[in-house]
Amino acid sequence: MNRIARYLTHPQVVIDQTIPIPEWGLSRVGRDRTEHLACACPWPNTTHIVTSTERKALETAASLAAAWACPVDVRPNMHENDRSATGFLPPTAFEAAADCFFARPNESFHGWETAKDAQARILREVIEFLWHHSGRDVLFVGHGGVGTLLYCALAKRPIDRRYDQANGGGYWFSFDIDSRQVLHHWRSMEAAAVMRNDTRSTQTQRRHS
């Protein structure tokens, strides 16, 4: 059986301009979505969860790990692209900045980490972990920006924001651990839970047929 790695972005957060962005935690909506995914347990072969050190990712990973009895590996270099040079940006300004970040991957937007550098960093962290991983499936919990850059690298696509997840976070894609082949583009947390419930329903029907 193929071993599968999945990259999941944290869902909605509490936006608080008074604290650094890496310290933002999940909102009530974000926690509810995570708990729903945890209860559905759509990926029963997961033996490890790997997360960045940012609070929102840690909270997502902790909830899933507690429900699935998985160990959590924390890797500081899985953080989101470094945007500390500008700090918090209002939504409209942030979207414009993100457009520039993806459109000019070799250039820094007002001191941000470049998309090329962020892509090399997240790809290195993921591959390094998998190189030493001997278990079954792995779930990486992280962030939308570097997650999209990882997808582009693994799918052999140019860096482009058209490969980004939808708004709000809480999306995942998967790839084969051994071949590094991407299996599908972003899907929502809710889609994963539905897929698991459909599988359970089919198995129940087969047992009683």
Rank of each mutant, 00 (worst) to 15 (best):
P71A: 11
G135A: 02
G170I: 10
R136Y: 08
A57M: 11
Q205A: 15
S209C: 03
G135M: 01
L139H: 10
A97Q: 03
T148C: 09
A153K: 14
H143V: 15
Y151A: 03
S63R: 15
I127C: 15
N167W: 09
T34G: 12
H143S: 01
L139T: 02
F102E: 08
M189G: 04
R196G: 03
M78Q: 11
G147I: 06
I159Y: 03
L64C: 10
N45I: 00
A103P: 02
C152L: 05
V138S: 09
G87S: 04
R6W: 04
R6G: 07
D198K: 13
P71M: 15
V194I: 15
T46Y: 14
L130Q: 05
G170S: 03
A192F: 09
R162G: 11
A98P: 07
D178G: 06
A67K: 05
R33S: 12
V182Q: 08
D73A: 12
P158H: 01
N45P: 03
I19F: 04
A85C: 00
G87L: 02
L139Y: 06
P158V: 07
N167T: 12
Q205N: 03
A166M: 10
F102G: 09
E107Y: 00
G169D: 12
P11L: 06
D73P: 01
T114N: 05
P42G: 08
R31P: 05
I49N: 00
W172C: 13
T148G: 07
T86P: 04
V13M: 06
D82G: 12
D164T: 05
R161V: 03
D73G: 02
A57T: 13
R121E: 04
E80W: 12
H208W: 14
R28P: 05
D32R: 13
A103Q: 14
A97K: 13
F175W: 14
P90F: 07
I159H: 07
L64S: 00
A166Q: 15
F102M: 09
P42F: 10
R121H: 11
G168S: 06
I122C: 00
V14F: 09
F88M: 02
V13E: 05
L154E: 01
F140S: 03
G168T: 11
T92A: 04
H48G: 01
W131Y: 04
H143L: 11
H79Y: 09
P105M: 08
N167Y: 04
R28I: 04
L58F: 11
A120V: 03
R28N: 13
G111M: 04
A103M: 14
D178I: 09
R200A: 10
H184W: 02
R55G: 00
P42N: 14
A155P: 11
